[in-house]
Design a protein around this nucleic acid. Sequence first.
DNA 1: GACCTTCTGTACGGTAACACACAATTAGAT
DNA 2: ATCTAATTGTGTGTTACCGTACAGAAGGTC
Lengths: 245, 245
Amino acid sequence: MSTAADQQDAKKNYLLGSLATAEFERVLTKLQPLSFALGDVMHESGDKMDYVYFPTTAIISLLYIMENGSTAEIGVVGNDGILGIELFMGGETTTNRAIVQSAGLGFKMKARDMKDEFTLGGAFQKLLLRYTQALIAQISQTAVCNRLHSVEQQLCRWLLLSHDRLDSDKLVMTHDLISNMLGVRREGVTLAAQKLVAQKLITSVRGTMTIIDRQSLENAVCECYEVVNTEYNRLLGRGVARTFA
Amino acid sequence: MSTAADQQDAKKNYLLGSLATAEFERVLTKLQPLSFALGDVMHESGDKMDYVYFPTTAIISLLYIMENGSTAEIGVVGNDGILGIELFMGGETTTNRAIVQSAGLGFKMKARDMKDEFTLGGAFQKLLLRYTQALIAQISQTAVCNRLHSVEQQLCRWLLLSHDRLDSDKLVMTHDLISNMLGVRREGVTLAAQKLVAQKLITSVRGTMTIIDRQSLENAVCECYEVVNTEYNRLLGRGVARTFA
DNA sequence: GACCTTCTGTACGGTAACACACAATTAGAT
DNA sequence: ATCTAATTGTGTGTTACCGTACAGAAGGTC
């Protein structure tokens, strides 16, 4: 692939966008554009992946599924990162499911190409490792947040994380879906959402939540959100969070 | 360092022990033996580390400390791994505190030496990356377990995790310390421990818990324990868990 | 327009873990 | 032997979330 439009699009993914020109152009030749549909399972626990993915407007959830069917999200990948770190980390597979949480676009790269690029040991490798460390920070914070914070706080965090990775203020998401991500009951999400609606931070109507007061949402969220954001910023040179005008 | 005794000791750390002879001997010249005392803080959130550590009989907890002072463990490193992945991952620091949970021995290596070894890109690098992926699995499972399982189940998991990394059946640990690791109240640990004592899985006296029926403890634990163990086994060629006679 | 499905709101009883308070026990120090 | 500090046990009331059940509302389909 190599149209100028694709080039522009690829840069929307921060990892690709931070590559120096020469490296970016080499990598670009190995990328194929791709559309992610809501609910698509990019890989199942234990699956070998044929591709790695660089979302630009799509968001992918890393979900863990328990034996009894309950689920919990451990992390999220959007235009900030790459799906498929297990390929260059050497394990080939992981124990979680990757599912499209918000439809959108992105690029894919063959597993073989990814490994070759990584083995070169250049700036791309360094970047991928730093990204992996940022992802570890996100997963760690999820662990802590799961232990110590309320559903309402976690819903705030989840909304902000999604908002950061989207162009729009509208999150197309049912309470049921969010409850699977947060690992809580659907009713729990409804209740928490109502509280946020009452404070006029969001609106929530059948299948869509809209963020109407992001600043106040940031005031309501637990520290976990900011900690992860700062860490992404430190490790990758820029935060994921939207900035204000 | 290079005495024959040290060589034997170094092999007690699985990462070091899985190196091929030539690589092991090269690495060995860069190791210094070290003793870890209970409660020692190996690094604080945000600190740059001068060394990485390879425990052999000590256990280190990766603890996250919230703004309000409450704490939660995100992972644990013993003879199965290395403390200080952030050095070769490129971030230099992390957002958690590393504290000695169980006193014991191990080795340290200068940060500079670690980076040089990693940059060589050989088997050691591959091993370190696979270990990092195993640690990610552990942290992820902690996140899920924090969300979905009871304190009693988590105490079982924590006891087994510690037992796996120790020679003894005695865990020198107060309820208060464990409560900080699990991110729950001290009373909660006391209650959970009482239930396990009633089932004759452990004994618990002032400052020491002793595992007396490991098999039953494994039956009582949630799936999280086994999942992580299987993943360590797959990624590193051997599990951490003790095997039975 | 009638029907069906999906999504959301509400209610009720149950439970696990919380916060706080304080008593009882044990270990170590002088 | 006594004192002190650390550790563990226990009780009481509160809260957040769970499981279950069901009603109402919104949207798609025929």
